[in-house]
């Protein structure tokens, strides 16, 4: 084969190979690590998502936060102003976690319908509402 042709062929093969691997990784990564976002209302009406890693968001319901005095167990309700979801978490809450503020929790839905959170996210802004929550609230309006 002409050296220039051969050079080209090899180049294209390499690119093809690298892209295939990248696509493989991207697809694998996306299929196993996507965190779908749900609102309390959506979670109430679905049973098939128990046990999968998901995110849920809403506003922390006033007076719903119950903290243990002897352990890091904490539970609270999040709401989209239609339905509430009980969230259980064990750990230190972020600095900006507070009642009547937006919060996103990551974890999975337990058999009893409560949400077992592995991570609690709050944002550094007092006027902040998680965009997912804002959207969800808007959808409920319409």
């Amino acid at each position: 084969m002409h050296p220039l042709r051969k050079q080209r062929l090899i180049t294209f093969l390499v690119i093809f190979f690298a892209i295939s691997i990248a696509i493989l990784l991207v697809v694998r990564g996306l299929s196993s690590n996507l965190n779908l976002f749900y609102t309390p209302t959506e979670l109430k009406n679905s049973s098939e998502i128990k046990g999968i890693n998901i995110r849920a968001g809403g506003m922390v319901l006033k007076d719903s936060v119950v903290k243990s005095k002897t352990s890091l167990e904490v539970q609270f309700q999040i709401t989209d102003y239609e339905n509430n979801l009980l969230v259980k978490y064990s750990g230190v809450l972020p600095d900006l976690f507070s009642e009547d503020a937006g919060v996103v929790v990551q974890g999975n839905l337990a058999k009893d319908g409560s949400f077992q959170a592995t991570e609690v996210l709050a944002k550094h802004d007092e006027n902040y509402m998680p965009p997912e929550v804002a959207n969800a609230l808007k959808k409920d309006d319409s």
């Binding site: 990564g29 996306l30 690590n33 996507l34 965190n35 779908l36 976002f37 995110r55 965009p131």
Partner: peptide, 11 residues
């Protein structure tokens, strides 16, 4: 409008 987030394991 279904929302997701791409987590750290992806990267």
């Amino acid at each position: 409008g279904k929302q997701i987030s791409v987590g750290r394991p992806y990267y």
